[in-house]
Write a protein that binds this DNA or RNA. Sequence first.
DNA 1: ACTAAATTTGCAATAATGTTGCAACTTTTA
DNA 2: TAAAAGTTGCAACATTATTGCAAATTTAGT
Lengths: 141, 141
Amino acid sequence: MDQQFTMTDDILKRNKLSVTDGRKKILGLFLARDGALAHADIEKFTGEMFDRVTVYRTLQTFVEKGIVHLIPTTDNSILYALCKENCEEGHHHDNHVHFICDVCTKTICLDDVTIPKVKLPKGFTPNHSEMMVNGVCSDCK
Amino acid sequence: MDQQFTMTDDILKRNKLSVTDGRKKILGLFLARDGALAHADIEKFTGEMFDRVTVYRTLQTFVEKGIVHLIPTTDNSILYALCKENCEEGHHHDNHVHFICDVCTKTICLDDVTIPKVKLPKGFTPNHSEMMVNGVCSDCK
DNA sequence: ACTAAATTTGCAATAATGTTGCAACTTTTA
DNA sequence: TAAAAGTTGCAACATTATTGCAAATTTAGT
Ligand SMILES: [Mn+2]
Ligand SMILES: [Mn+2]
Ligand SMILES: [Zn+2]
Ligand SMILES: [Zn+2]
């Protein structure tokens, strides 16, 4: 038998996850896309293919495994994007800036833009930072 | 007649808002507190005093008037905090860092810590930035 | 390849959160 | 003090997310 793995199968196996249709499809969406995805986007792309609950559980699993990371937003929506770094189960290392385009509304990981340190007032100890920049992206300029 | 204004009455009048029990009470909560408040916090503090809808509408009005500003969060909750700056109707100017204490879970406006500029990749134009820092606050250290 | 064990999925029910229209009530204006 | 303007509570509705459990799928062992 021919052991040809697809990229999605490969990632799932590396992370000790069962290779299921739902996970393959959803992971594929992330791989095909440069921007972040919301739960609603995924539902739109997958249609009636899977139950909403499965999408929720798949995203949660991916976050736990360090396959995707959560992106904070200014409205109160939840966004997910592929981890490109050394993220592991239960421990993310994404400390890049996120850019939200005001024109196309895409949210993009600026993987090469590291979040700068800031000087905090006396008594405050930093642990982790998040930074989002709004504006116009390179596609929309 | 004795024209003694309370601080809340004063702020409401300056913003051309009717002085009502709900607005006074909710604004009072913000004035008494150094950290941010979520809708749920306000419901907890006001109890059965007002309808949920009134709390929603009051917060929305305060944001519109520039009395409080929204704070983005890493989970998907919505937080509100008093504007201390020159915020006006429909135009906020709060560009300070927000600190979330991992111990007491309070979110605090670091009014004196300005969000640093970052160098974006070619083609990206910034417009507005948000920054959140997690860690241990001065009370919990 | 076949089967048992482990894992994942869909469904139904439930919860939490937020929005809207409208009539009753309160506040402001004059 | 009365009319006008603005605000509130209620009820209904919408959206988003979570849970338990049985059925289905996937994996691991032979
Ligand atoms: Mn990212
Ligand atoms: Mn603030
Ligand atoms: Zn764009
Ligand atoms: Zn603290």
